[in-house]
Design a protein around this nucleic acid. Structure first.
Lengths: 187, 187, 187, 187
DNA sequence: CATGAATGAGTCTTCATTCAT
DNA sequence: GATGAATGAAGACTCATTCAT
């Protein structure tokens, strides 16, 4: 189980450092310190390996998004929790976040996987929240997927700027961003 | 000139269909209906070809962004025009938009090209607008590059969802998105 | 180790048969009975392979030149030994001799390798002999490198004629050549 | 006729500068200032072009070797004339001399051409001289081809050292070399 | 399970050659 | 004759994948 994990971590590291297109098996083997044949005990081929890394990253993010999520909290509290978690996930796991963000729409990732549930229903929870907010007249009427994508897009944007050191991302900025994204979808 | 254009169009098509990483010369030659050596009459190598496609795409987008842009219009009108144009460019030229969005930070695209002016000063115009809005107390105080990235990021995110058919993108949705992005950066 | 050797021998054979310029990897693989990728387990590229073949040939020749060389023998005996060994090396290893002779000054062979000691100091020994002979007034005064090249050049020239079957090269001829080259540099 | 000559001269220049193996048609066209198709009006292919250059070089050298050659002069005078002419040809036409010397035994040059008469019988004249000298008891008994090759080898050696600036080659040196080569083959 | 030498299909690229102008 | 854009066979080299140990 350790070898499998070594390989996946090495793959994620290398994708982050050099981009998916220049990650070769030779580099993965060297980085993971395993023999070149070992990978085939765990993955059928390169595509499966990458998709597996993608799947695990998605699962980890899905799980992270629901940290301290209280279904009984107020609408704004729940929104804040979800946006904050997404932002913090990006801050703590930049490799995973960027990998997901960069390749979700790439032809390399199988469409089934892209649209697949992450096992924690986080996407559905976000959209449920949007729909509920719209029913209550708090959130503007629009396609829930569109709205979801919109608030997600704001977080992505901010994180990408942060990754290239355009600005710091402390509690102050985090609160500002959450408020800005909240205002963006209010009626 | 026709052959050169055939090659560039074939390249853009293939990048869109399969991703830059799996675009091979063999596929380009077949798609463009030219001999395998012909490309080298126009481009020194694959990197130059891809960068040339990138450059033309950037130029086309830069030009498109300024459609009907009136420097004397109100702040909101100008903002609306720019955001709307970006969105419409993405809707009408999905291949170009996705190529630019996906590979601007790829090591394959030369840094000088990525940062190069697109010949229409569109980037500068957007940031000038932001700075002016901030001086007038309309737009929230923040780094102008960050703000630029934020409103750009919303459009990108929305377009990517649209491309995978998550939702339609008609006039109604376009207006919703523009308003949401405007509200996101207001004080 | 066997594969590596197979490749080098095949390379030398092909250089001899068709000349360096027309030796392709395809021919080497076929001749050596290895897969096309195998070479890269042993040599970084074609240049390294050729240089390695050159290096081994030089080492072999350097070793051969000193067969039965007796530092206490007379000047003429030592001269005879060296010239005779060079000639015999060329007779017994025509591929190596011709390869060294033809490509020592080719841009394909790295200069440091060309000038490198062959590990047996044979070049130095020849020049030492010349210098000693000049000090004793036996050998004509001239640059030792020039003199070295002259006696070496005679052997090369003779061997090339022999290789294209211009004449036989038996003991009689060998003695004639050695004597002629000795007389050419005497005072 | 001018174009044909331009191409041949450009070819000889390039072979001298970069070696036969790296001379491409593209370089020849550029150097000769002709279009890429022009060559096929004069030469069937690259090999024919190179062999034609070789043939002309050999003819020019053959002609040069007989400058001021007096069949009635003394044996030594005639020997001196031939060796001197060969040396002077190498001094004045280094490109041709080196090309002939380097590629005469290369598989690139067709064997028929290598052994072909140069149209001036110079080779035969040299060997006739040798045979005559041997009959008179002046020159050592040995295969005339061998002897020819030997005195030719000395000149080649000397010229190669001269080309890389190891020493000057003025009248003094020329006389020394001729005498040395004469002594080499005397009984 | 783990290994890595061996493999060969596939990659980019070069370059002699053709042919319409 | 002269041209050079177009060509594609062939070159060096890469890399995912296999298999004997």
């Amino acid at each position: 189980m350790s070898k499998r994990n070594d390989i996946m971590m090495a793959t994620l590291d290398l994708i982050h450092e050099e981009g998916l297109q220049s990650v070769t098996f030779a580099k993965i083997f060297k980085q993971a310190n395993v023999g070149s044949g070992t990978i085939y005990n765990y993955f059928a081929n390169k595509e499966e390996l990458v998709n597996e890394v993608y799947k695990e990253s998605r699962e980890k993010m899905g799980e992270y998004l629901l940290h301290d999520y209280d279904v009984n909290a107020s609408m704004y509290e729940r929104f804040k929790c979800l946006q904050s978690n997404r932002l913090r996930f990006g801050i703590h796991f930049p490799k995973m976040f960027l990998f997901i963000d960069s390749y979700s729409f790439s032809p390399y990732i199988s469409p089934e996987l892209r649209n697949k549930d992450d096992g924690h229903n986080s996407s559905e929870i976000v959209r449920d929240l949007i729909v509920e907010g719209q029913r209550q007249g708090i959130i503007k009427e629009m396609d829930s997927h569109l709205c979801h994508q919109l608030i997600h897009g704001i977080i992505s944007s901010i994180l990408k700027g942060y990754y290239v050191n355009k600005y710091p991302l402390n509690e102050v900025q985090i609160q500002q961003i959450i408020e800005a994204s909240w205002k963006a979808i209010l009626v």
